[in-house]
Amino acid sequence: MTTARTPALHLNKVSYRHPGDTASALDAVSLSVAPGEVVAVLGPSGAGKSTLLALLDGQLPGWAGAASVLGHALQPERALPRHLRPDTGFIFQDLGLVDRASARQNVLNGRLGRTPAAASLFGRFTLDDHQATDQALQDCGIADLAGRRADQLSGGQRQRVAIARCLAQQPKLILADEPVSSLDPTRADSLMRLITSLARDRGASVVFSSHQPDIARRFADRIVGLRAGCIAFDTSAAGLNEAQIAGLYAEAAVAPAAQPLPDTGVA
C-alpha cells in the first residue's frame, strides 16, 4: 500500500551494467519521488535515462543496490512480479502499439493486467475495463478515432493512443521514456500538458525522461540531471540554472560527482 509517507519510488545506490558493457549505465543512483510528484530526468543521449526508467518498470533484472516502487521492494535479480505491474504505467519511446489493432483495442490492452486473464483471451472484458478505456480515450481527445486501426493514425494521434493506454491501466506511477522527443514544440507541449495534467487529476506520480531542458522546466516539479549514469544534480524546476544545464551537456567535462540522497534505507 502507498501512503502519503511512502515515496512513489525510492532508489538507494542503484547501479546497472548492460550485459557485455564495461562501463556502468547507472552508477550508484539514489533518488526518491513523492506521491503525486512530477519529476523530469534530464540528460544527454546515453546518460542512462532509458535504463533508469526500464529498471524502475522492472524490465531490467540484474542490477545492484536497493529500490522500491510504490512501497514494494524490487528484487535485483528478478523481473517485477506480474501482479504489481498494472500499478506502474510505462509510455514507451517507440509507443509499442499493435498496428493492426484499433485505437480502442490498444487502449483496452492497458487493462490486461487488471482484468480476468482467461476471459480476456476470448475478448471478454469487464464493465470497469470498458469504462476506463472510454474515459481514457475521451481524456486524450481521441474518442472519435477509437475504431481506426493504429497504423492509420498520425504520429500525434498514435502518441495519444499510447498515453490513453497508460491511463486506462490506472497506474499510480507513470514512467515516460522521452514521450515527446520526436514531436514539434507545439505538439510536444500539448502532449506533455496532457500527461502531467491527467496524472495530477488522478494523483499519480510521473517520472519522464527528456533531453530538452525547456520541457523539463515547464512540466516537472523537480528535475534530476543524469550524466554518464550518475546523478549530476537534483533540483526544483525553478532552481534549474544555466550552469547546471551546460555542465550536463558539456562534452569534455569530467563526469560530475553523484549527489546521492541520504541513505534512508529501503523497505
Binding site: 506480474r82 501482479h83 506502474t88 514507451f92 493486467g113
Partner: peptide, 11 residues
Amino acid sequence: GPVLALDSIGA
C-alpha cells in the same frame, strides 16, 4: 515493442 509493452502492463 508491442509485446514488451503488454508485458510491462502485466499481461
